[in-house]
């Protein structure tokens, strides 16, 4: 077992062992070889044990049982034991095989010649000659009309492949320019759909809101497209703190007694933007940290966003609930090519 009797086979293709002086202990000591043999078979045995543990755990452990690991938390018992038994079972096989190769297989460095990758000159010449023969027989060069018309046909051939992609989706139309906000539409609370009175929002307060009827639109469309562009934030500032708003000159300001309504969709790449710092009136986007000053027309004060956060003009209806005075004056969300 300890000494591997090498009957050296040599041929044109067999690698040549490099003479070396380093001898492994397992090569000269039968005791060491025996030890390695035991160690490696132990590793394989452990792997088998792991497989058994895996099966038992899979059958026996309830899927919702947890196990408390000191300092590291409470984990799913099944996940932990399945992972460890399967993982270690695999690891032991690998460790055993590698140890076998290192300790007991003949471990001699060998040398082999590389051969140039380039073909010999005569092979190249022959290949070229054969190609030319083929080219000549194809009449590709002597039939210009056929050649050109074939190229033309090949150029048009992919058109159906592209055309077939057309119905992947509708044309953009003006969808990116509009939201469902209309004059007189109530601004209601997100999640609960309750209407809001200005007095409900204290100074420093914030409300995640949406147009009244959004859930019905979602239901009807079967998607979340409208939610992805029409959600808004209501904040209330001390009217004295408001520096400017987005209303055109001459028009009444777009707030209602210090309550301001802004789009919740970041004009950078569209993340919902809602990290509101009530003391600084800054709104921060958690994705790329664009920061907008809500007291100053939603102006960009930091970060990669290029445009101010669109403001929605609001007022109250006869019942005292907040309504949109108009839709957004500009497209909400990320910039796009067609946007002016």
């Amino acid at each position: 077992m300890s000494q591997i009797e090498n009957q050296e086979h040599s041929s044109e293709y067999a690698p040549v062992p490099i003479p070396h002086s380093e001898v492994r202990r397992s090569d000269v000591s039968p005791k060491q070889a025996k030890y390695q043999q035991r160690l490696i078979s132990l590793l394989f045995g452990l792997s088998m044990l792991c497989a058994v543990i895996f099966v038992v755990a899979y059958v026996q452990i309830p899927i919702d049982e947890t196990v408390s690991i000191p300092f590291l938390g409470t984990w799913s018992k099944m996940n932990t034991i399945l992972g460890l038994s399967f993982g270690l079972g695999s690891f032991f096989i690998g460790a055993g095989v590698i140890q076998w190769a290192k300790q007991l297989m003949s471990h001699r460095e060998m040398v082999q010649d590389r051969h140039p990758l380039r073909s010999p000159d005569d092979a190249r010449e022959d290949a070229i000659a054969q190609f030319q023969q083929g080219a000549q027989e194809s009449t590709f060069a002597t039939q210009p009309i056929l050649r050109r018309s074939l190229i033309g046909a090949m150029a048009l051939f992919p058109i159906p492949l592209v055309m077939l992609l057309r119905d992947l989706g509708p044309l953009p139309g003006d969808k990116l320019f509009n939201t469902m906000w209309r004059p007189g539409m109530r601004v209601v609370m997100d999640v609960t759909s309750a209407p809001i009175r200005p007095s409900d929002i204290p100074i420093g307060g914030i409300v995640s809101a949406m147009p009244d009827g959004l859930p019905e639109v979602q239901e009807h469309d079967g998607n979340l497209n409208e939610r992805a562009k029409s959600v808004v934030l209501l904040v209330r500032l001390n009217p004295d703190d408001i520096v400017s708003q987005q209303n055109p000159e001459g028009e009444a300001s777009w707030d209602y007694e210090g309550v301001l309504c802004f789009s919740k969709i970041c004009p950078h790449v569209g993340c919902p933007i809602a990290l509101y710092e009530q003391r600084t009136h800054h709104l921060l986007c958690p994705c790329h940290q664009s920061t907008f000053d809500l007291a100053d027309s939603g102006r960009v004060v930091f970060g990669p966003a290029a445009r101010d956060l669109p403001q929605l003009p609001i007022t109250v209806d006869k019942d005292g609930y907040i309504i949109a005075r108009n839709g957004f004056a500009e497209p909400v969300g990320p910039s796009f090519w067609e946007r002016a």
Partner: peptide, 18 residues
């Protein structure tokens, strides 16, 4: 109360049960 920079969620916009 909205301590520091946290905005205020009033009783009207965030009910007791919420």
């Amino acid at each position: 109360t909205g301590p520091e920079n946290m905005p205020v969620f009033s009783d009207q916009t965030m009910s007791d049960s919420d």
